[in-house]
């Protein structure tokens, strides 16, 4: 019998094998839940969307073209459902695209207008609410930015796989990721720097 963490048997999945699908659920549920939850910021909604993701994947198995990893395809379904849920509920992120733009650094003559100061590693280590701060900062970003930092920097998926999940080019993924990190840097800086 296969164990969680074993490579997925894609042929069995595509043949509708119930055991293979159960292995997929056991293997991918924790990460898929974390990703969807970061996008929708609502645990109950995230659980429901994750279940719907698996169901839709099963119902649409014949549309998987083997042009990506099976899990990439699965996560694309999950992200699209999460975005659809946000649209439907009309829940807006605290920050919009213009706010993200304002959090990018300014330059004059090719040089930084404002000089950053390195973060003190001792202060960082002492910050007991580090994770909560980061969580709150991510939650402020627009959903496209939340999705990309979650997939790339929290779940540490390769950038090209993240681009496929988000259905954007590699170049667009790199630009969006950079902008998201710079916005987060700005949000975190005031908490980390005394």
């Amino acid at each position: 019998m296969s164990q969680p963490g074993d490579p997925l048997d894609v042929d069995a999945l595509l043949a509708g094998d119930a055991t293979a699908f159960e292995q997929l659920v056991r293997q991918e549920s924790p990460r898929l839940f974390r990703v969807i939850n970061r996008v929708v910021n609502d645990e109950d909604e995230a659980e429901s969307l994750m279940q719907e993701t698996f169901l839709q994947a099963y119902q649409r198995l014949d549309t998987f073209r083997r042009e990506s990893k099976f899990t990439t395809w699965l996560y694309a379904i999950g992200i699209n459902l999460a975005r659809g849920s946000l649209r439907k509920s009309k829940r807006l992120s605290p920050l919009d695209e213009a706010a993200v733009e304002r959090m990018q650094p300014d330059f004059s003559g090719g040089m930084y207008v404002d000089q950053a100061e390195s973060w003190n590693p001792h202060r960082l280590a002492e910050l007991s609410q580090r994770r909560e701060l980061v969580h709150q900062a991510i939650a402020q970003l627009p959903d496209d930015y939340r999705a990309i930092v979650t997939l790339r920097d929290i779940e540490e998926l390769p950038t090209d796989e993240v681009a496929r999940i988000l259905e954007i080019s590699n170049g667009a993924a790199r630009v969006r990721l950079h902008r998201a990190r710079q916005a987060l840097r700005k949000l975190l800086d005031s908490h980390i720097r005394p």
């Binding site: 994750m50 973060w119 980061v134 540490e156 990190r181 987060l184 840097r185």
Partner: peptide, 25 residues
């Protein structure tokens, strides 16, 4: 600061999963 931000994000993966998440699914 940029690298520090990435390091903080890397450190942020664990979160509490709802009880019986897999079984419910």
């Amino acid at each position: 600061q940029y690298q520090g931000t990435i390091d903080l994000l890397h450190d942020c993966r664990n979160c509490d999963l709802p009880d019986d998440l897999v079984e419910h699914t």
